[in-house]
């Protein structure tokens, strides 16, 4: 998807949807009582930890505009990941 120049936020939502659907389906198949946790755990790799640190680091080093922009990107990415997981939860009928 990156090679096809698809928007990174859309990619995050699609990947989150796919991985949490797989995790939720697998967890349901083995009779897990924490399907919700499995679905969230599957997208933890997508959480933008380095950009979140870079945003703070930029503000500390005297570049508040750049830091704020990075921070907004982090929040947007988290929002799209959550939308992907939420869609998977709705599809699988899992209570968030």
């Amino acid at each position: 998807m990156l090679r096809r120049d698809v928007n990174v936020f859309v990619i995050a939502a699609c990947v989150a949807f796919l991985s949490s659907s797989l995790a939720g389906w697998g967890a349901s198949r083995v009779g897990s009582s924490t399907v919700n946790v499995a679905m969230v755990a599957s997208v933890l790799m997508l959480v933008p930890g380095v950009p979140a640190y870079n945003a703070q680091s930029d503000i500390l080093e005297g570049h508040p505009t750049l830091g704020t922009a990075r921070g907004v990107c982090v929040v947007m990415l988290l929002m799209f990941i959550a939308i992907g997981v939420l869609l998977a939860q709705v599809l699988l009928g899992v209570q968030p």
Binding site: V37, V40, A41, V43, L44, V47, G49, V50, A52, Y53, L78, M79, I81, A82, V85, L86, P96
Partner: peptide
């Protein structure tokens, strides 16, 4: 080394809470 401490699960829970 610090990235595993980023509270991703809480972040997801917070956003789900906002949706709910």
């Amino acid at each position: 080394g610090c990235i595993p401490m980023v509270p991703g699960f809480f972040a997801a829970q917070a956003i789900f809470g906002l949706f709910a």
